[in-house]
Design a protein around this nucleic acid. Structure first.
Lengths: 157, 157
DNA sequence: TCCATATCGTCAAGCAGCTTGACCAATGCG
DNA sequence: CGCATTGGTCAAGCTGCTTGACGATATGGA
């Protein structure tokens, strides 16, 4: 497919302004969720843990699953699991049906931290609602969802 | 000020979906700009350099300026400048009017890399335009600009 | 059934990018 | 002038990731 068809041409300066705003908002959101989670008493977690928790939440996951989801090596994922297990947010269980694998599942503390992150995110989004209005924020979410990629979550830089 | 006024209440699950989409789009954007820049021949730069270039572009900046803009220590900024100077993207000049400071300015190669990043960003945004339409993307940018923070650029995680 | 190959997870070592702490040179205010 | 402040660098250390190697289990073809 031809890239530069006339009516989809974008001014480079506009693209940079949009990109800068998007990345600035993303960085701000991450930082403020982090602060909110810390304020709720979970002082030993980092933003990356949130993405791990999100993957573990449904019903647990293996280290390899987690690695693919986070876009890092198995070793890095294993180290991250070591950390959240040591801190009491998750535990390793034998995997039903595959003795090689281990199922990593959230503990009650892990669930509590996940809920804290949700509350913190809702606080930030609530501020956006006060600035933009509810409909605008809804439209924002809908559009972002349509251009969001499929694959693993990647750090923004 | 009271946070949870009734009509600005946000469902936690909605907030998480919006946050996840935003961070996914931001990560994808970063990665694809990076790939575009590499594809244009600048194989030895990282995303963080782009934010430095943006600060240097107008007319140069000091290491301390850069550190504040990137939200890191002076030492880290100085190391980053070492790197982009060594790779030929910038150079250190005496600062007019302050013999302690040094003005870091982009070289021609630095400008070329900045233009490459703009082109790569425009390519990605062009795809969004094909998906959402031009008006929607414009609205997206306008809304993001309204909720973008003032301070230093922070990494999204 | 048996064995070759692939996969799950971990151990170990190394590296990149950031931090803290210390320091010198230049500034500028009393 | 005297001295606290500021711009920049040097040095050492830490954290989170990588690559490489390995044992244990699973899987599929002869």
């Amino acid at each position: 497919m031809r890239q530069g068809c006339f009516n989809t041409r974008v001014q480079n300066s506009d693209a940079m302004a949009l990109s800068a705003a998007l990345l600035a908002v993303a960085g701000d959101l991450t930082q403020r969720i982090q602060e909110g989670v810390v304020a709720r008493g979970f002082v030993d977690v980092r933003p990356a843990h949130g993405f791990a928790f999100a993957r573990l939440a449904p019903g647990g996951a293996t280290v390899t699953d987690l690695a693919a989801h986070l876009g890092v090596t198995k070793q890095a994922a294993s180290q991250l699991v070591d950390e959240i297990v040591r801190k009491g947010y998750a535990e390793r269980r034998p995997h039903p049906g595959d003795a090689r694998a281990r199922l990593v599942v959230l503990t009650e503390r892990g669930w509590a931290c996940t809920r804290a992150a949700e509350e913190a995110a809702a606080e930030v989004v609530g501020e956006w609602v006060r600035t933009l209005g509810e409909g605008e924020v809804g439209a924002l979410g809908a559009r972002l969802a349509r251009i969001a990629p499929e694959g693993p979550i990647r750090p923004a830089w």
